[in-house]
Design a protein around this nucleic acid. Sequence first.
DNA 1: CAGCATCCCAAACGATACTG
DNA 2: CAGTATCGTTTGGGATGCTG
Lengths: 125, 125
Amino acid sequence: MMKTIHTPHKEMGEKTHDNCLKAMRAVQDSLYVINGKWKLPIIVSLTFGKKRFSEIARDIPKITDRMLSKELQELELNMLIQKVPAEDKKNVVVYELTEYGNTLDPAIQELYKWGTQHREKIKED
Amino acid sequence: MMKTIHTPHKEMGEKTHDNCLKAMRAVQDSLYVINGKWKLPIIVSLTFGKKRFSEIARDIPKITDRMLSKELQELELNMLIQKVPAEDKKNVVVYELTEYGNTLDPAIQELYKWGTQHREKIKED
DNA sequence: CAGCATCCCAAACGATACTG
DNA sequence: CAGTATCGTTTGGGATGCTG
């Protein structure tokens, strides 16, 4: 009856200080790659299919060309996305998630779920 | 044989433009709450138990008192953490995750997993 | 120890204009 | 359309020092 209700740590192991530091490093490593205001939104956009520059821009409210350009470059450097020639029209390139970029999907799903219910929650005031 | 290998979108639904915009909003809502360099690390620290100010600070390399103080306030405002009197020693407070703060755990688990393998991957060069 | 105030800087971001 | 260059602004965050 003094046990806690929730059961976190499926992955992180027991609540030792070492495991805490390990988790800290891992989460900070993730953060380092997806930091900033726009990287995850871009990845979300590409989760819904290959897109051209302007299509991604349309998906993300308020992003500027400059930021989109800059972030696409960084994401490409980190091998999360890649430019490929469009299948139909020649001379057109589209952006798509790499296999590696797709490995972010579980995390994004969780952030999607959390964000969805969070929006509901704050609407209640 | 032309089917893609991965299966995202369990939660986000079909690849329609509307679902894309919906996902965009949700993920950006999450981002808004956990943005910055320190909020998730703090939550990770508290995932491993109630902690005093200095204990959290010790868990998170390079964080300054100022940032820790500032971020704790914001997290408290967002109802993700709370200050409670320590069980044993009177006149001492500790920080802990709220029930609501704990709902971030699945997302953090995924970021933990991703960060862990990412560290492995970049070590390979 | 716990935490805030002040000051300051660098990085992130935005606005605008421009080119192939 | 697909970006890049330049410039200006904002803000996240660091350093330091002080207080209860």
